[in-house]
Design a protein around this nucleic acid. Structure first.
Lengths: 154, 154
DNA sequence: CGTAATACCTGTAGTCACTAGAGGTTTAAG
DNA sequence: CTTAAACCTCTAGTGACTACAGGTATTACG
C-alpha cells in the first residue's frame, strides 16, 4: 500500500505527483534555489514535509499563471514576509498582466494576417500560391509595421 | 561611400541590415542550413547576391509570422519547387494558424484569471493579499481545469 | 602610404525552463 | 531473497538565437 497520509515525510515521487510535476523538475527547483535543499533519509533520498508540498504548489501555480521563474522567486520572497505591504506583489502581477495582454494583441494581429493570407490561397500550384507569395514579399502584408516578429510568441 | 547598389556582391553586414537581422543570425542560419554556405572573397569574408537577400527576407518574414525554423525549412523547400501543388504549404499554414488561435485562447483564459485576481487586491499587507492567496490555493481559481500551464505561452 | 576604426572571421558558451538519458544505489513488493 | 520500481548524480539536449573572446581584413582619413 502506498502511503498517502498527510503527516509522514514523503518521497520525491509523491511530492511530484501531488503537485503535477516531475521528480526532475523538483530536483531542478532545488538546484536553482526555489525549493530549499531537502533533508535526506539513511539511503540519501529526499524526504519532504507538507510545507514543501504547499511551497511547490505555490510555485507551480504561479508558473501556470505564466510568471517567470525569477518572478516566482520574488513572489515566494514576498509570501515569506506576510507583514509587509503587498504593493510589490501587486505591481509584479500588474506588470505581468500587461505583458500577457500585449502578447495577446500581437498574436491577434498575427492571426488576422495569417487568416487573410490562408484564405487567399486557391489550392493551385506553389508558383501561384498566395502564402508563398506573401512570404516572399512583405509589401503584400496589410500592416507594413508588420506583426512584430517571432518575439510576439514569447 | 557605402555601396548599396543592387548588383555588386554585398557583405554580411549589409545583408543583415537590409533584412532586419544581425550578422550572427545570418551565420547561424548558414550553420543550420537555412542559407547555403556563402562564397568567400580573398580575405575569407562572405559575399552575398541579391538572391540571398530575397531568401533571407523570406526566412525572416516566415519567422515574423511565427513559423518555427523547421517549418521555415519546409516552406523554403516548397518555394524551391514551384510547379508542385501547394497543398502542403496550405496545410502547414493552416496548422500554424490553428496553433496561434489556440495560444490566443489559452492566453485569454490566463488574462481573465489574472485580471480578476489583481482586481481583488485591496492594497493591504501581503498577509491579506488576494494575489498571494490565490497562488497559494488553486481552489480559489474560477476554472479548476486551470489556465493550462506555462506552455500556454509557447 | 600609414594608421586607426570598423567590419569581419571562428569557436565557444550563455539564455530559459526544463527534459532525457546513462549508470549506479535504495527501497518496497511478493 | 529476488526483482521491479523508485531514487541518486551528472551531463547533455531542446529552440532560436545572442554574446563574447581573440584574431584577421577592409576601409576611411590625413
Amino acid at each position: 500500500m502506498t502511503n498517502t497520509s498527510s503527516h509522514a515525510a514523503i518521497g520525491i515521487g509523491e511530492l511530484a505527483s501531488r503537485t503535477h510535476c516531475k521528480p526532475e523538475t523538483v530536483r531542478y527547483y532545488e538546484k536553482i534555489g526555489l525549493l530549499p535543499a531537502a533533508p535526506r533519509n539513511d539511503g540519501n533520498q529526499r524526504r519532504y514535509s507538507e510545507a514543501t508540498v504547499q511551497r511547490l504548489m505555490f510555485i507551480r501555480h504561479a508558473r501556470d499563471f505564466g510568471f517567470s521563474v525569477e518572478a516566482v522567486r520574488e513572489l515566494l520572497d514576498m509570501a515569506d514576509h506576510p507583514s509587509q505591504p503587498c504593493e510589490q506583489v501587486d505591481s509584479l502581477a500588474r506588470r505581468h498582466l500587461a505583458e500577457v495582454e500585449s502578447r495577446i494583441q500581437r498574436l491577434m494581429v498575427l492571426r488576422d494576417e495569417l487568416k487573410r493570407t490562408v484564405a487567399q490561397c486557391d489550392g493551385d500550384s506553389v508558383a501561384q500560391c498566395r502564402i508563398i507569395e506573401v512570404l516572399s514579399d512583405h509589401r503584400l502584408c496589410s500592416h507594413d509595421a508588420a506583426h512584430g516578429g517571432a518575439e510576439a510568441l514569447r
